[in-house]
Computed example of a mutant assay.
Amino acid sequence: MNTYIYMIRHGESPKTEGNDSTRGLTEKGKVDANKVTELLKEEGLNIFISSPYRRAVLTIEELAHLSGKEVIIYEDLKELLFSNEDKIIPDQELYPAVQKMFSDRNFSLQGGESVTDCQKRSVVVLKEILTEFKGQKIALGTHGAVMTLMMGYFDSDYDYEFLMKTSKPDIFRLELKDEQLIEVRRIWTE
């Protein structure tokens, strides 16, 4: 029996308020979260899991509630930690650092984690999810880098170039048999 994981990258989020873990969605992000719900409401999703970051939860929360379910939070599904402070890093600083991190997988910013460390922590949780919810259809509220790293665990084609082609939000349906990736299909259309 195959398991389906719908990797749902969060919608657009303001980089002007709060900190990295608490920032919500912009108006466009909220509209797009409604589109995520519309796109997936007939998919038969029965488990809803998310990063603890507010923007990821908000992107799948309506879909979960429509299904009569709560969102289960997994701390180790949070985004790649860029620093030991929960601060917002401007894109002009962040993207060059992310590119370097993907090319030198053990590089990290001061106080942050490497992509190797992020992949290890997130894949441990992903394997737990695959075991606990085997044969289910799972919505997973996530972020760009950690999503790419989890997908990259199964197939190295999911790399920095892939990450840079994704959108906010984005949806990829992974079909897995145990821990073997069978197929990935992009569902989000802009």
Rank of each mutant, 00 (worst) to 15 (best):
D104W: 01
E17F: 00
L130T: 12
V57W: 00
P52Q: 01
G152E: 04
M101E: 10
E38T: 13
E75T: 01
G135I: 02
Y158H: 10
K87D: 03
L149P: 04
L176F: 08
L81G: 03
G135S: 06
Y53F: 14
S103L: 07
E85T: 08
G44R: 02
I138E: 01
Y160Q: 09
F172L: 12
F162G: 13
P96R: 02
Q110A: 09
L45P: 07
K69T: 02
T189M: 01
G135F: 10
G11F: 05
T131M: 13
V31Y: 12
K100N: 05
L39V: 03
T37D: 03
F48K: 01
E43Y: 08
L126I: 10
K165E: 14
G44Y: 04
H65L: 08
F133D: 07
M151Y: 08
G152L: 00
L63H: 05
T189E: 15
L130R: 11
E93S: 10
I138M: 01
K69C: 09
K87W: 05
T26K: 04
M147I: 00
G68R: 11
G152C: 01
R54I: 15
S21P: 05
N2I: 06
G141I: 08
T189W: 05
I8R: 03
I182L: 13
F107C: 01
L40I: 10
S50L: 03
A145S: 11
I129R: 07
K78H: 14
D86G: 00
M101Q: 10
R55S: 00
L39S: 14
W188N: 14
I138L: 00
N2W: 06
T166P: 11
Y4A: 00
C118H: 08
